[in-house]
């Protein structure tokens, strides 16, 4: 049981600033030497030398200011991006709940999106069919489930996203501050579900700007600042230090 679910070993992630080539192939070819040099030199370091371990069954919070690199960290765990250097190990299937509406197509209905999203994440069609009714029921979207999701409000998108991710029963759940837009009653339902998942041994990584929620669900917290780990430890201790730092800053 002491096995690690997620290990970051001196991980760095830099984004190339691609705007100069997105300008088009014509511009790229007519400006070849400059363009090649720009690709090599203009990179933005989003994470720098980050190391931590998350054990199986742990619930870990990730906090930090806007642009600190929290979403980047989750993107790396979800495998939608690769790190630039260092080593990253993930043991278990990942159910990512990243941004609002992530992984959905806006023209398809809620029900069609559940099927699409769950199959993309690794379930078979038959497995989704077994679960789709409980997913729909959990989301409480009613008749809207058969409407294209472009007519959904942000809270409704969050409901749909959380309902799918929570019903995959994967080993690792990632939540990136999407629950904030849900109403009181649904948020409570989500936290109950998260606590239930926690009891069943799921590993959860939870990004939020709401310290009360972090304190409620997380056992440990990672505080990311200036693109690297500033502090990692017991929830209470890290949150207190973080809040204090925020106050001092202004």
């Amino acid at each position: 049981m002491n096995e690690n679910a997620i290990v970051f070993d001196r991980v760095s992630k830099s984004y190339p600033l691609y705007h100069h080539i997105i300008g088009g192939i014509k511009r790229f070819i007519f400006n070849l030497p400059g363009a090649i040099k720009a690709i090599k030199t203009s990179r933005y370091e989003a994470l720098n030398d980050v190391s931590f371990e998350i054990r199986k069954g742990e619930t870990v919070g990730v906090i930090g200011r806007n642009g600190a690199g929290k979403s980047t960290t989750l993107g790396l765990i979800a495998g939608v991006m690769q790190c630039t250097s260092g080593r990253l190990t993930v043991n278990g299937r990942v159910a990512p709940l990243l941004e609002l509406g992530a992984g959905f197509n806006h023209e398809l209905t809620g029900r069609e999106n559940i099927m699409l999203n769950a199959v993309l994440l690794g379930l078979n069609i038959s497995e989704v069919k077994e679960r789709i009714e409980s997913i729909v029921e959990f989301s409480e979207l009613g008749d809207f489930i058969d409407q294209p999701i472009r007519v959904y409000s942000s809270g409704m998108l969050a409901r749909l996203g959380f309902s799918v991710a929570a019903h995959l029963n994967f080993e690792i759940l990632l939540v990136d501050e999407v629950l904030g837009v849900g109403d009181q009653q649904f948020q409570k339902k989500c936290y109950d579900k998260i606590i239930e998942a926690k009891k069943s041994g799921m590993t959860i990584v939870f990004v939020s700007h709401s310290m009360p929620e972090i304190e409620r669900v997380c056992g440990r917290v990672i505080w990311i600042e200036n693109h690297t780990v500033k502090r990692i430890g017991e929830t209470k201790e890290v949150v207190t230090a973080y809040l204090k730092a925020q106050e001092n800053n202004g």
């Binding site: 990942v94 990243l98 999203n117 993309l120």
Partner: peptide, 11 residues
């Protein structure tokens, strides 16, 4: 056209 699924789901 599939940006939203490519960015967020690994397949």
């Amino acid at each position: 056209n599939n940006a939203s699924i490519i960015k967020k789901v690994n397949f």
